[in-house]
Design a protein around this nucleic acid. Structure first.
Lengths: 133, 133
DNA sequence: GTATCTGCAAAACATTTGCCCTTTG
DNA sequence: CAAAGGGCAAATGTTTTGCAGATAC
């Protein structure tokens, strides 16, 4: 937890997969992607490395509350929109000025210092809206 | 799931406890509160009833991502501030106009319809800030 | 009476951990 | 080689479920 972790082919591949193939993925899905490449790979090791990557700040864990956690490679700050119809997770940008304004109001009215935010928007995504009408 | 559930003393008490004693509580904690009253109460039944109360819209489930879920009686719309130092969960109000503005922007730029929001703010609460300095 | 609710225990998951071997530096 | 990484399987923690009996309507 203090020293720098050693190199690990498996961990490198996990990060690459999150950075390239797909934006939001569960541990099980990452595991399945790598099984052809590392037939003896264990799911436990995927979890271990995802945790390390989260500690290193290279991956975000999204505890979306629907069973298993979802992971994504760290990118520019953004938030998530989850479609309640199809379940897909979309990234959305929210102007920083609005976020800052909210943090400021919370500090003013309650005295709590906002350091980070965990935000999910739910609703119906563009594709599902189009399909419905 | 379709018809109205029958009356249940246990379920009524679970809701009362969430409405009165404490704002944010896990299933295990609710279970412990009721064990003196219903010595044969089972944790499974607490979960069952919490799920029913969530379905009825009387209770919110907060999947905070740290192990077990937390429940609260439904009140006016509000959000949560979680202190990263002491772990306490605080309710915070955020002006509706700001929330509406964010929803409007997401719809404008992405086309997704925002129906609900799941928002947590993290940081250092008033008490911990005072204690630190 | 019959459908729902309950306690109980087992099952189902997601995630973590211990052990012992392998790899890295 | 010493320390970290990995496979494997068992353990853990949370939540759900099947069943037989109790309860509500």
């Amino acid at each position: 937890m203090t020293g720098k972790p050693r190199a690990s082919k498996q961990r490198d591949r996990i990060l690459e997969i999150l950075q390239s193939n797909r934006i939001h993925a569960g541990a099980q899905w990452v595991y399945e992607q790598l099984r052809s490449e590392y037939p003896h790979l264990s799911l436990g090791n995927v979890y271990r490395n995802l945790n390390i990557l989260v500690d290193l700040g290279k991956v975000n864990r999204l505890p979306l509350g629907s069973g298993s956690d979802v992971y994504e490679a760290v990118k520019d700050p953004h938030y998530h929109f989850i479609c309640d119809r199809c379940g897909e997770i979309f990234d959305v940008e929210i102007p920083e000025e609005l976020q800052a304004e909210i943090g400021r109001r919370i500090q003013e009215t309650e005295g709590h210092l906002v350091v980070s935010r965990s935000v999910e928007y739910h609703g119906i995504c563009r594709e599902c809206r189009r399909r419905d009408q």
